[in-house]
């Protein structure tokens, strides 16, 4: 069958025969739990939703380099410095895997980059919180990367092939991130009173923001149902949050620390964790750009991009020169 020519939108309210056929093929792929690949026909809202989600995810990785990069020079040992550098490098890598996946949906890299730099694109609000102490490196690794992993593992089975494949690679690499964070806190928890206090304060700071990383409660998350029907998401925000809070409630005991949520408990009747009410007004406010570090994060990204301009120009000029001498 010849490739279908896309119809101009709005010309007809009734989908053409070709469109119906394509939609049926797409639906069958989703129903069979198969994967959609870049050159397959897909409904525009599916493409749009994925482009937004994957590029936001990529931006989050890129901006997420900053809170930790900030501590590389102040890491307490050469070992910790090397570990932190490897982690920040991984985050750059994860951003690049995800940009590649986003590009297969038809938006090119320069445009995606531009969306971030001009502030048109969003990224995970967690990175708009400053990392105040060395213990925050521990809390970020344990709680923030922990929440990210809980979110990302099911995404390895996302219906869009390139996204799933990028997530497989990312999840494999990410597990060290959480462990190294936990071990930073473990070291501090066995240290002096001041170190213990620093660790506890970092946990207190990042507990709530990490629970909010799963997104708004299910009844306030309008796009979730569609994403689940498309099998991009496999579990709801609340399901994932439940799973995560159950895990950290156990893990915090190993640290001999506490979560800043004294009433946290498992309700045997409802079969669910009851945690404190999260401050969603703050969450929305941070997403809108009014978090403690939004402006700083974006400005730093712009500055890095500006200051790297001469490198990109030189590389482009060198490539052009090489090509000329090859032709000659």
């Amino acid at each position: 069958m010849a490739p279908t020519t896309p119809q101009e939108p709005g010309l007809s309210a009734v989908p053409s025969y070709e469109e119906q056929q394509s939609q049926a093929r797409f639906d069958a792929l989703i129903n069979d739990d198969s994967r959609v690949e870049p050159r397959d026909w897909m409904p525009e809202p599916y493409r749009k939703t994925l482009t937004r989600q994957v590029s936001q995810h990529a931006h989050s990785e890129i901006i997420g380099m900053q809170p930790e990069a900030n501590w590389i020079t102040r890491a307490p040992s050469l070992k910790r410095k090397s570990i932190l550098m490897a982690k920040v490098q991984d985050e750059a890598g994860h951003g690049l895997y995800l940009y590649s996946a986003a590009e297969t949906l038809g938006t090119d890299r320069d445009e995606l980059n531009d969306q971030l730099l001009t502030g048109r694109a969003k990224y995970s609000s967690i990175f708009n919180y400053p990392a105040r102490t060395w213990a925050d490196m521990g809390a970020i690794g344990w709680l923030v990367d922990g929440a990210a992993i809980a979110n990302q593992v099911p995404l390895c089975r996302a219906s869009y092939g390139p996204y799933g494949r990028a997530m497989v690679r990312i999840c494999k690499e990410e597990s060290f991130h959480q462990r190294q964070g936990f071990e930073i806190l473990l070291s501090l928890s066995r240290g002096t009173e001041a170190q213990k206090k620093m660790a506890q304060e970092a946990i207190n700071r990042f507990y709530e923001p990490s629970l909010m990383m799963f997104g708004p409660p299910d009844d306030q998350s309008p796009n979730s149902a569609q994403s689940m029907a498309w099998k991009i998401k496999r579990f709801s925000n609340d399901e994932l949050r439940q799973r995560f809070v159950g895990m950290i409630e156990e893990q915090v005991k190993v640290l001999g620390m506490t979560l800043p949520d004294p009433d946290l408990h498992f309700d045997e009747e409802k079969k669910q964790w009851i945690h404190k009410d999260l401050n969603w007004d703050e969450f929305m406010n941070v997403i809108k750009g009014n978090g403690p570090a939004n402006a700083q994060r974006l400005e730093h990204r712009r500055k890095a991009h500006r200051e790297g301009a001469w490198v990109r120009e030189a590389a482009t000029a060198y490539a052009a020169k090489q090509e000329q001498s090859e032709v000659a």
Partner: peptide, 11 residues
């Protein structure tokens, strides 16, 4: 394994 952008083959 994946893809990337680069100005030339060496990069």
């Amino acid at each position: 394994a994946g893809s990337l952008h680069a100005p030339d083959k060496e990069m």
